[in-house]
Amino acid sequence: MINVNGKIVSTSEILIENNRGFLYGDAVFETIKVLDNKVLFLEDHYFRLMSSMRILRMEIPMDFTMEFFQEEVLKLVRALNTPVSAVRVRFNVFRDANGKYLPSDRKIGFMASAEVLNVSAYTLNSSDYEIELYKDFYITAHLLSTLKTNNRLVNVTGSVFAEENGYQNCLLLNDAKNIVEALNGNIFIVKDKVVKTPPVSDGCIKGVMRKQIIELLQKHTEYTFEEGVISPFELQKADEMFITNVIVGVQPITKYRKKEYVNTLASDLINKLNAKIRLM
């Protein structure tokens, strides 16, 4: 089932030849986890979506409130009619207008799709998870790179590269050759009890789970957190590395080239994250 502009349908019937999201990537999206009919991190998703739409100069309807956003997500989840408690929702907002590069209108449309998740709570994946750098293309460190838009060709080609070479993920670089993020989430590295992640100004996605993990780290009594530029040379010196996104929570990295890593902090953060969402 799909939610198209508030209507639950089995097929969208949106003509891709006229859709600006397809033609020009004139669209943004949120990947959301719904657990027990609760939209996790609702405010963070909503305000990031609003910010992205404003940056792209989309016209936001007056009734597109946080309550409206939540209800449209839950309406779709209820339509699945599944006993499974965890659902992944992709909420797409596109500029619903004609025109070429210049849109004829600033109004928006939306389409949301959903799929059932096999695991409800966040769990530690301790299986082998090897990464490599992806250097065919780079991320430019500017504001558009921090948005979740439909322009994700670096992530697509990087994912193909990872599969072709037997890696579970790759890290992306910006045009200054610094580490920005993973293909599907933000990156954190740990060295001597100091946890570091790239600043948004380096071009990384302003991740919702990134925000949750930073909040947990800032309260942690055993670790110090900092945002800072990460050089590729720091990766093999790190004690631990992990990737974050709202679907998996925290994904430990086990190997980069000849270096292997522990998952001590990742395991601790998953426990703290689950405790946090139980209180939501």
Rank of each mutant, 00 (worst) to 15 (best):
M209Q: 12
P83A: 09
N186R: 04
A112R: 07
F188N: 02
K148W: 04
P61Y: 05
F188G: 02
C170R: 14
G203L: 12
K276N: 06
D44W: 07
V180A: 14
T157I: 08
F225C: 12
N186C: 08
S52T: 10
Y24R: 14
S120D: 06
T157A: 04
L133F: 05
V262R: 10
V154A: 07
K259T: 12
A182M: 10
K193L: 02
Q168P: 09
G158K: 06
N151F: 01
A162F: 07
F91D: 00
D268N: 05
A266E: 02
P61W: 01
D202H: 12
F225L: 06
P199H: 10
S231G: 11
S85P: 04
E115G: 10
Q70N: 05
V208G: 03
H220N: 09
P103S: 14
A114R: 12
P103M: 10
K38R: 14
V84C: 06
I230T: 07
E240T: 11
S51Y: 12
T221G: 10
L74N: 00
L49G: 03
K38V: 13
K276T: 11
V73N: 02
K7I: 11
I187P: 00
T82S: 15
S51M: 10
M53R: 01
N174S: 11
G6F: 02
L172V: 11
Y256G: 07
F22A: 13
N184P: 01
N184D: 08
H220E: 03
Y223W: 15
I139A: 07
K148T: 05
